[in-house]
């Protein structure tokens, strides 16, 4: 039992879950136990979106130092706008709308990697500049109109099964799949190997270029999924709908115990971190903190959790 606890304490993701739990307990202590379940349900719903993009970002960051996808917010918006426009409130066009949105998102991934590989632009600049192009495209394509999602999509995004959002179950399935990919597939092992030492990975016969390409497309695709679900959830796409996911996607990866230097990914940590981030905001709202105080405290708490988790081993 003690050995098991010790082993558990050494898992890098345990801190994010512990932090989430602590924040939740403080909140319900403050409310006197009121709404404890409702807060958890809401946290699961909202955290789901962060988890989806966090998983994509995690894969990108794991492919090695310097790799990061800053185009996630723009891709979310583009995918949401494309989905709403193509579906045009018509349930019959639901599938084609999803396909179009995910297709557009994948193209963003291809475009990002082309900038990185062919033009040799560092990922941080490449994805940042491409996000301006993507956002402009979304703005001109979705100009001014506000279209509601078809009913089944909105229902799926908000449905619950014994208090648990159905969407979060779907994302759980995606998470398990990514965990399996990392541990048991050639692509997953390649991501981890390339992230540790791309030179050694190449000499070990792995395809470094293809691994990174697939990863950037995967990240964009996850952002696309997030965009479609989010426009179903919040009853329409908006041009700023992706905004908050820039910090959120990176923070969940870091808090969740994934190595920023690459080579080590952590799927459970993404869940703990996303729940923590949402519950933190909820707690501060419950305390009646103003927007400014909320931002400052959020920043401080994120730093505190990263420090508590030990961060990277310093050498």
């Amino acid at each position: 039992m003690k050995a098991m606890l010790n082993k558990l304490a050494r898992q890098p993701w345990i801190f994010s879950f512990a932090a989430a739990l602590a924040v939740w307990l403080i909140t319900i202590a403050h409310t006197g136990g009121q709404g404890a379940g409702a807060i958890l349900t809401a946290a699961l719903s909202f955290a789901t979106f962060t988890i989806i993009v966090g998983l994509g970002q995690m894969m990108v960051i794991t492919t090695g130092p310097g790799n990061v996808d800053l185009s996630i917010p723009a891709t979310i918006t583009l995918s949401g706008v494309v989905a709403m426009k193509v579906m045009d409130e018509d349930t019959g066009r639901l599938v084609i709308g999803v396909v179009a949105a995910l297709g557009a998102a994948s193209l963003v991934g291809v475009f990002n990697y082309a900038l990185i590989r062919l033009l040799r632009i560092p990922p941080i600049i490449a994805t940042l500049s491409s996000s301006f192009l993507i956002l402009s495209t979304a703005i001109s394509y979705g100009r001014g109109i506000r279209i509601k999602p078809p009913e089944p999509l909105a229902e799926f995004a908000t449905a619950r099964l014994v208090g648990i959002p159905v969407m979060s179950l779907a994302v759980l399935a995606i998470s398990l799949m990514i965990g399996l990919v990392l541990a048991r597939t050639l692509y997953g092992r390649s991501v981890l190997a390339v992230g540790q030492n791309s030179n050694a990975a190449w000499l070990a016969g792995l395809d470094v270029g293809r691994t990174r390409f697939v990863t950037y497309v995967l990240s964009a695709l996850m952002a696309g999924v997030c965009g479609v679900l989010l426009s179903g959830f919040s009853r329409g796409a908006a041009l700023n709908m992706g905004e908050e996911f820039l910090l959120a996607s990176i923070a969940t990866v870091v808090i969740g115990g994934t190595s920023v230097a690459g080579g080590r990914a952590n799927v459970p940590g993404i869940w703990g971190a996303a729940l923590f981030m949402y519950l933190l905001v909820t707690m501060l709202n419950t305390f009646g903190a103003s927007a400014g105080v909320r931002l400052v405290l959020t920043g401080l708490m994120i730093i505190a959790v990263i420090v508590a988790a030990g961060g990277e081993e310093q050498r």
Binding site: L186, R189, L192, A193, Q196, N197, N199, A200, A201, L203, A204, G205, L206, S259, G263, R264
Partner: peptide, 19 residues
């Protein structure tokens, strides 16, 4: 610089070329 994957076990380091 060209050989070892520092985060991996001995086993994974051996099998990476045979995946």
């Amino acid at each position: 610089s060209d050989g070892v994957f520092n985060l991996w076990s001995i086993g994974r380091n051996i099998t990476v070329r045979s995946l």
